[in-house]
Structures are given as structure tokens and as C-alpha cells.
Simulated scan of single mutants.
Amino acid sequence: MIRTYMETDLEEMVRIWYDASVVAHPFVSASFWASHKSAMKEKYLPLAENYVFEQEGEVVGFISLAGERVCALFVAPKAQGKGIGKALLEHAKTLRDRVSLRVYRDNKKAIHFYESRGLKATGEEVDEHTSCLQVLMEWE
């Protein structure tokens, strides 16, 4: 079930973000992600429009929007490959006429996922925090 997040979901959302980030981005040190946990909880997530995927009373994934931009889409590693990310992205597409996002170029699995959901690469830029190349993707 997809629902609007509640403040009580924040701890679990940060845990999912951290765990999934470490798995999906082996080219970025785990210490980088760990150093951003408090900012995710106290700044970034509270400022976004968040939706969580709840399964059997447990939050297993979430998507965060800022206008048309998908700021975050993460699924707990143990729950990946079960259609949760797809459901969250499709939910966002029902709320917006257009969505855009950035994904690390070295995260081939994510790029394939977004392409299979109809997003197209529109450019590249360097992430100022990690110095890694990001692909800009859009759907409309």
C-alpha cells in the first residue's frame, strides 16, 4: 500500500535510504552516506513530498518529490525486485504531468529501471558532493 508518509516513518526511511545507497553505489564510500544521515532526517526528507510503500505494517520503500523532481526513490534491499520501486514511480507519475531525476551514471541497474519506466536521458552533470557523473532523466 502506498500512503503519505508520517513523521514516525522518518527513521525507517533514513535506514532504507542508507542501506539501499550503500548497495547501489559501491563507487561511493559508505562513510559518505553515513555522514548525511542526520541531514536526510532533519532537512531533506521533511522538506519533500514523501510517499511510502507499506507492506504488512512495515515501510519497505519510499519516493520523495520536490515539484516535478524525484529527489529520492529507495527500496529496502531485502524488498527489491518485487515491483515496489515501479509502484512508487508510477504513483508519482499519476501526481505529475512530468517527472525528472538524477541518477549516478555508474548505477546501471537504476538507469535500466528508469528507462524501462519510460524516462529518457537528457544530459549529464557532475554531482558536487561526490564528484561522480549523474545522468539527468525525464518523463512526460
Rank of each mutant, 00 (worst) to 15 (best):
Q55S: 13
I84V: 15
C132T: 07
R98S: 11
H112E: 14
A76L: 06
V75D: 08
K108N: 12
L65H: 08
F53T: 01
V52D: 05
G81W: 09
R69S: 12
K82R: 15
K78M: 05
G81F: 07
G81K: 05
N107P: 09
L89Q: 08
A87C: 00
K108V: 15
F113L: 05
P77Q: 08
G85I: 02
E115Y: 01
E68L: 02
K93W: 04
V75Q: 03
E125P: 04
R105E: 15
A92D: 03
A110E: 10
K82S: 05
K109P: 06
S38L: 12
G61R: 03
T130N: 08
G118E: 11
Y114W: 07
V59P: 08
L88Y: 09
A72Y: 00
E125W: 06
S100P: 03
A87M: 04
F53C: 13
V103P: 04
L133I: 14
R117T: 12
K78H: 14
P46Q: 10
A72V: 05
E115P: 03
K108A: 15
E56R: 07
H91T: 08
K43M: 10
L101D: 07
S116M: 11
P46L: 07
D97I: 05
P46H: 09
K93N: 07
T130F: 01
D127W: 04
V103C: 13
E68N: 13
N107G: 07
V60P: 02
H112K: 13
R98C: 08
G57L: 03
S131K: 12
E68G: 00
G123T: 08
L119W: 02
A48Q: 08
H129Y: 13
F62Q: 03
F113Y: 10
F113G: 00
K37W: 03
G67D: 10
F53M: 12
V103A: 10
E58D: 13
V52N: 00
K37V: 03
F53S: 11
V52K: 05
E54S: 09
F53H: 14
K78A: 14
G67K: 00
K109Q: 14
R117Q: 15
P46T: 09
L73Y: 05
Y114S: 06
V52L: 05
T94W: 02
Q55H: 12
V126I: 15
L88P: 05
V60N: 13
L73E: 11
Q55E: 15
V70T: 09
T122V: 14
D106V: 00
E56L: 01
Y114N: 06
M40H: 05
R105N: 12
S131I: 00
E115N: 11
P77D: 10
